[in-house]
Design a protein around this nucleic acid. Structure first.
Lengths: 139, 139
DNA sequence: GCCACAACTGCAACTAAGTTGCAAATGATT
DNA sequence: AATCATTTGCAACTTAGTTGCAGTTGTGGC
């Protein structure tokens, strides 16, 4: 695992530092998406707020993670799949936000269905967010 | 028009005040969605920031407007169609965010296509946001 | 039209979120 | 181990959003 994390960073021409390793590890451990505040909590105030911001920004730049907009105005971040490269995300899966545990989950195998736009509109990116109750909260 | 605005407010059990009239008028005039900052700008500092926040909140509560999440972490607000009632939105159309003019447009006639979720997931709400170039910016 | 009461607004003060510049510390390369 | 580029933490800042309270405005009854 340790080796795996270093490898991802090196592959993306990022120097291997404590904060980057730790934050990347968090993403690999969590099966969902993380908000900035989640990361600050889970790292246990080990890193400065600013460092977290900058680390997330560099991960975004390199295409390691992508953002998910949510209706409550808190951006979430999640790992990209392998075929994302610098600045160019191929991120056509649906995101699920649970109303109970408020986890954000990438439904990697649910692709966004095509829509027909009115004439004159040209699309470059599609986002789909589904709210509801997730698998673990169902009962 | 003036009468129309008062009517909407009364129908929703809101007292008719200067700020509410003005902000509702802005929504009726704009064919797209507005961010909080747009409203502050367009009202020309006539109202306190707090008043704008509270007005938007009460419009949300009454189901006059709905929110649209965007990837740049700025929530936009747009008028609901007639069949939205208190707290219960039937808001199944696609939203388009232009990368050039950064307007957010409700594509009222483009409905969100159904998706099949993995077993265990129960959906209550769907959101779809398309980024690209809008009709007016095309050339 | 006037009065009383509820609702709304503006102010001040606050918390939370995000940014920037710079000096010190750390990582990569030789 | 030395050097240089990169990264980090701090401080200070801007922007966004919230809360309590006193004063103002709108509503409905008379």
């Amino acid at each position: 695992m340790e080796f795996f994390i270093d490898d991802i960073l090196k592959k993306n021409q990022l120097s291997v530092t404590g904060s980057r390793k730790k934050i990347l590890e968090l993403f690999l451990q969590s099966n969902g998406a993380l908000a900035h505040s989640d990361i600050e909590k889970k790292t246990g105030e080990k890193f400065d707020r600013v460092t977290v911001y900058r680390t997330l920004q560099s991960f975004l730049d390199k295409g390691i993670i992508h953002t998910i907009p949510t209706s409550d105005n808190s951006i979430r971040y999640a790992l990209c799949k392998d075929d994302c490269s610098k600045g160019h995300h191929h991120d056509n899966h649906v995101h699920f936000v649970c109303n109970k545990c408020s986890n954000t989950i990438c439904l990697d195998h649910v692709t966004i269905p095509p829509v027909k736009l009115p004439t004159g509109f040209k699309a470059t990116e599609f986002q789909m967010i589904v709210n509801g109750i997730c698998k673990s909260c169902q009962n």
